[in-house]
């Protein structure tokens, strides 16, 4: 639901719910009967964006599928923190795969359900960014190419967090990781490499591709619902800040996701059959510094030995996104930064 659909000015659809709204107009997360697909007691770090994002996505998928759902989960934090044998935090049918093959496992599950005539049971595959853009890319591309009936969700925390914060193909330029040290003339991760998976997915012309973040719950839930209403290969890329890997404060997880979108660094859009159909305009534009300075992984860019030139390159990347996706429609007259 678009914010303007609700004649409720106090909050509109920015917050999860509101006492003045009909229960049906509230988010899935505001529903006391939500699935809570990943329950308490998991061992994710304080403030983990991935644990949060997974509940947002799967609760919405559970509602859309009437609870008839199977999850295939690649190795990564999401598996490790949720399922230390013999305990599990999952409140739905869940199968673990290897690091790189979750798309193939999900394809197999979907094929088996089809063979059994149980296609009403829906299949969701999920993986971290490493399991998606790097080691899992081959299986995923095959799944896209065959248009297998799977919703693939990537929880992008921009690194191999589970194994100690190594660089992935989704790690942003200049970020410090365990193997991109903040030293030398080009500190941190290199510019110009890495993989933009939403656009790779679009190149496969699959029915649905969307990006989202944990900072815009209503948008995320709407996209899950949309994806679940379609058949064939669908791809959802969710930005999930990681306090450990990003060296950020645990309470800033959602704020960081919001700043990523409001700076233009993380464009939020959807595409059908390879064509962008909608983008979420920036509401309160901020300079990239507002986003970067909250994260220790970019600390080397600031302070007395800071690198304004590198920050400017990051800003240029954000500006490119803003142009490409037309993210700034009207400029807020009173400017920036109420985030």
């Amino acid at each position: 639901m678009a914010p303007t659909d609700l004649k409720l000015y106090q909050i509109g659809t920015f917050a999860a719910g509101n006492r003045l709204l009909d229960p049906g107009d509230r988010s899935v997360q505001a529903d006391p009967g939500r699935a809570s697909s990943i329950t308490s007691g998991h061992r994710a770090c304080q403030g983990c964006g991935e644990a949060l994002g997974a509940r947002f996505v799967l609760d919405a998928a559970m509602r859309a599928a009437g609870g008839e759902i199977v999850i295939a989960n690649a190795t990564g934090c999401l598996e490790v923190f949720s399922t230390p044998y013999p305990e599990s935090a999952w409140q739905l049918a869940w199968v673990h795969s290897l690091f790189g093959n979750v798309a193939a496992v999900a394809t197999g599950v979907a094929a088996a359900l089809k063979a059994q005539g149980r296609e009403h049971v829906r299949v969701v595959a999920q993986a971290g960014d490493g399991g998606t853009v790097d080691i899992g890319l081959g299986c995923l591309s095959g799944m896209f190419e065959r248009n297998d009936d799977v919703l693939f969700v990537c929880y992008d925390n921009q690194g191999y967090m589970n194994t100690g914060v190594q660089r992935s193909g989704a790690t942003p330029p200049a970020a410090r990781t365990a193997n991109t040290r903040p030293v030398g003339s080009e500190p941190g991760n290199v510019f110009g490499q890495g993989k933009d998976l939403p656009r790779i997915a679009m190149a496969h012309e699959i029915p649905y591709v969307a990006t989202a973040t944990v900072a815009d719950l209503r948008d995320l839930e709407r996209k899950v619902e949309k994806a679940m209403s379609l058949r064939g290969a669908r791809y959802l890329h969710v930005l999930v800040p990681c306090p450990l890997g990003w060296a950020s404060a645990s309470q800033d997880t959602i704020r960081l996701a919001r700043l990523a979108t409001q700076s233009g660094l993380f464009p939020v859009f959807e595409a059908e059959h390879g064509v962008v159909t909608a983008t979420t305009p920036i509401r309160r534009r901020v300079p990239v510094e507002d986003y970067l300075t909250l994260q220790g992984r970019f600390a080397h860019l600031f302070g007395p030995d800071g690198r304004p030139d590198v920050v400017a390159r990051i800003q240029a990347g954000a500006d490119r996104n803003i142009d490409r996706y037309d993210l700034v429609t009207v400029v807020d007259p009173d400017g920036v930064d109420h985030v």
């Binding site: 917050a15 999860a16 509101n18 505001a30 994710a44 403030g47 949060l52 509940r55 719950l217 997880t253």
Partner: peptide, 12 residues
């Protein structure tokens, strides 16, 4: 009663 706190807790 905006339900945000219920929504945003990573630990349910």
């Amino acid at each position: 009663s905006c339900d945000n706190c219920v929504a945003v807790c990573p630990d349910d």
